[in-house]
Every structure is written in C-alpha cells, then in structure tokens.
C-alpha cells in the first residue's frame, strides 16, 4: 500500500489551509525518508549485539520451537508429530504439578525479593563510613558457592537437630515444621533460601537506580515540608520505575526458570513437592532422551513468561507516559 499523506485521510483535523496537496506530499515523503533514516540508525545501534544474539541464541531457540512439534531423541533425525507433544502435555500430571510448583515459587520469590532488595538498597544508600563493607557483605550470599549454600541451609533446616528447629523448640514451639523433609514446607524453605541468595543481587540494581534520582528533587521536597514517607512515595518510587520494572521482569523470568538451587537443595522432592518446570524439562529431555516433548514444555513455559512480560511491559510503558 502506498502511504497516502495524512492530510488526505484526515483533512478535517490536520490539513492546514495553506498547504497545497503538492507540498504535503513532499512533506510526507521526507517524513518517510526521515523515518527510514532513523530506523537505519536505530538498527545500526542494535545490530552488533543483535547479530551475536540472533546467531547464537535466537537460532537455537527457534530450533527448539521446531523440535517441539517432533519426536526427537537428540541423536537420530527428528520425526514430525504435529501437536502430539502438546496434547500429551495436557494429560501429564507431572507437567501440571510442576506448573503449580513453579507458580508457587514465583509468587513467593518475586514479591519477597523485590521488597527486601529495595529495602536494603534504601538502607545502604547513605553516607556512612564503611558503607561499602556492608554492601559487599550483602552481595556475598550471591557469591557463595551454590553447593555450600545447599549444604548449609539443609543443615540449618535439618528437621531433628538443626539449629533453626532447636531455636523454635526452645521458644516453645513443640512441633516445628520439618522443612525440606515435608511436602508442605519444602517449597517455603526453598523460597527462603533463594530470597536470601538473590536479595544482594537485586539490591545492586536498585542502588544503581537510586543514583539516577537527582538530589534536587529531595531538596525541593524538603523545602516543601514533605516527610520521609511522602518523599519515598512521591519521589523515590516514581523515579525508580524503570529499575523496578527491570528487576521485576528479571525476577519473573529467573523465578519461572529456577533450576540450580532446587536441583542442589531438594532435587524436586520430597515426592514432587518442589518439582519445577525447568527440572522436568531437564529430566524428560536430557535424562530420558525425550527431547521433542521437553521442547514442547519449554514452549509452554515461554508462553507463560511471555504473557507476564508483555503485561508488565504494557504497564510500565503506560507508567512512563
């Protein structure tokens, strides 16, 4: 379709009276040229990263989407099976249990980490001597080896002689939770551990975000007599919106594909109490060699996360306007 000049489509609204059709056509043409030029510039910025990304990540991901419609053992040529893998998903109790568990994990992990990381960032964004030491210390959980984290938390939460239950006993709780040994408490235990591990990471992002808020905003607010809460509510939070959105998306994505921590802490147990989607994808695909089916599961996970991302993107863009 040849783009007709806007003046013709909406003459009542935009056509200025002194514009001759000839002139408006030229203007539209140059606007298009300008748009093309801008697009070219935009792409030139994006391309160096996008080329590498497309070649080494996007192509395999697209291949994974194709494999979802095949039966493939990761060795012999894949065989097209249509939507069989997807119909099989619908009746697979492991799939639904892991979707439920993944959602449980995400809805526990996302708000807790977000709130604590933001709290820590606000707490540590101040001029105290040696503040760097505290920031470093808070980042350490993220650096501690995952194996060590799993060992220590399992020891701390040991149901019979672990320090945590000993403390709970001594304050009069006769039947403390059995933590990772119980189907009810295993997921909360994993969530607590992951919040502990991740909060320093997101704190760093929030700290970087806090640096972008001009101090003058606060000074002006103080002059206006705003109290601490009002300053937080009316300056800090709105100014942090891009950072918060970024943290939220990252948290959503990392929560929905959580793997390592659960693998070393509970391996999905007891029973299927902490079995999450990524683990099921790993088990069915790599361990059991049912790669086509595992790819179908990844596609389902992708759709779940994508819909969350789009909702968050829309909300954030609306907020920006």
């Amino acid at each position: 379709m040849t783009a007709s000049p806007p003046t013709i489509r909406h003459p009542k609204i935009t056509a200025p009276q002194f514009t001759t059709p000839q002139l408006s056509k030229e203007r539209a043409l140059s606007a298009r040229r300008r748009a093309r030029r801008t697009a070219l510039i935009g792409w030139s910025f994006i391309l160096p990263n996008f080329a590498g990304f497309a070649l080494f990540t996007l192509i395999p991901v697209v291949a994974c989407f194709f494999i979802a419609f095949t039966q493939w053992d990761a060795y012999n040529p894949p065989v097209l099976v249509g939507v069989n893998n997807f119909t099989r998903l619908l009746g697979d109790s492991n799939f639904w249990i892991s979707v439920r568990n993944t959602a449980y994990y995400a809805f526990g992990h996302i708000p807790l980490t977000l709130a604590i990381a933001l709290g820590l960032a606000l707490l540590l964004n101040r001029a105290l001597r040696g503040i760097g030491i505290f920031r470093t210390a808070l980042f350490f959980p993220y650096l501690t080896s995952l194996v060590a984290v799993a060992i220590v938390f399992n020891l701390l939460f040991a149901p019979d002689n672990g320090p945590i239950n000993q403390i709970l006993n001594s304050v009069g709780i006769a039947n403390p939770p059995r933590w990772t040994a119980s189907t009810e408490w295993a997921m909360p235990t994993v969530i607590i551990t992951s919040v502990w591990r991740d909060m320093g990471y997101y704190m760093i992002l929030f700290l970087a975000g806090l640096q972008t808020i001009p101090r003058e905003y606060y000074e002006a607010a103080e002059v206006d007599g705003a109290n601490a809460w009002q300053r937080f509510r009316n300056i800090t939070l709105p100014s942090l919106r891009p950072t918060t959105y970024f943290v939220l998306i990252l948290l959503t994505i990392s929560s929905f594909k959580v793997f390592d921590l659960i693998q070393v802490m509970t391996e999905g147990g007891p029973g299927r109490a902490t079995l999450v989607l990524s683990q099921l994808i790993y088990r069915d695909g790599i361990v059991q060699g049912d790669y086509g089916y595992a790819s179908a599961m990844s596609l389902a996970l992708f759709v779940i996360v994508l819909s969350f991302t789009i909702v968050q993107f829309k909300l954030s863009e609306r907020g920006n306007k």
């Binding site: 990761a74 594909k257 989607l277 695909g285 790599i286 990844s298 991302t309």
Partner: peptide
C-alpha cells in the same frame, strides 16, 4: 519484547541444538 522473551527459555531446552 522478543529479545527479552528469549531469556525466558531455560537453557536446558536449547542447549543441545546450540
């Protein structure tokens, strides 16, 4: 958005094609 969405695919899913 499509850029970001690909982060959502767990690595286990595309590690063999890659």
């Amino acid at each position: 958005v499509s850029y970001i969405a690909t982060i959502a695919i767990p690595w286990q899913a595309y590690m063999i094609p890659q």
